[in-house]
Amino acid sequence: MQPKTSFFKAMFAVVWKDLIAELRGKELISAMLVFALLVIFIFNFALELDPKTRSALTAGILWVTIIFAGNLGLNRSMAVEKDRGCLDGLLLAPVDRTAIYFGKSIANWIFMLIVAMIVLPIYSILYNTNIISPALLLVILLGSEGYVAIGTLLASMAVQARTRDILLPILLFPVILPVLIAAVKASAGILSGFPFSDLQTWFNLLIVYDIIFTSVAFMVFDSVVEE
């Protein structure tokens, strides 16, 4: 035994724990997935769009689905820690508390990406259009990173409140608007076949927001979880 706590060791311990627990309980991904599929189905049947209009709306529908499903996941991921007092268990570890934040963030990011990877082919089949492309996957990767970076921080804040289920979307959605706009614009451009150079601004914006959100969370997480 060597009682020396490393940042990365603690961070990966949190990721490992969340993945194992999810593999067993399947609470988070199943809830996110069912919700995402329901949103896609509802859009499909409610809007009854012609193929041209439908393709113009694809990016928006896709991101609304990902964002709303992600909100469920973020809420649940922190609620599990709070309800059994496990958040205290994490905070008692002699480790930089941002390691816990990054561990939770990475696990949430993985869950969101899994849901997105299942939703994309289903969307393609349902709307009879192939939307899967490496560029779109890159947008989803960048967009969801920004989303979980700030989402995990705000979920740690909201989980302390009795009204956490309502509080998280109220706090989160206005803040992630720039990421959402950039992700929708970049996705729409890719689906319309625009060259990458025309979309670079949106990619740059996504990267900048990812960096800003991650840095802000890194700086303030300790204060957010402190009593």
Partner: peptide, 17 residues
């Protein structure tokens, strides 16, 4: 925190592990 062990009335354990 390295020197402390803490037990509360909640077990601080994960049910799915």
């Amino acid at each position: 925190r390295k020197k402390l062990g803490v037990v509360s009335h909640l077990p601080l354990l994960y049910g799915d592990l």
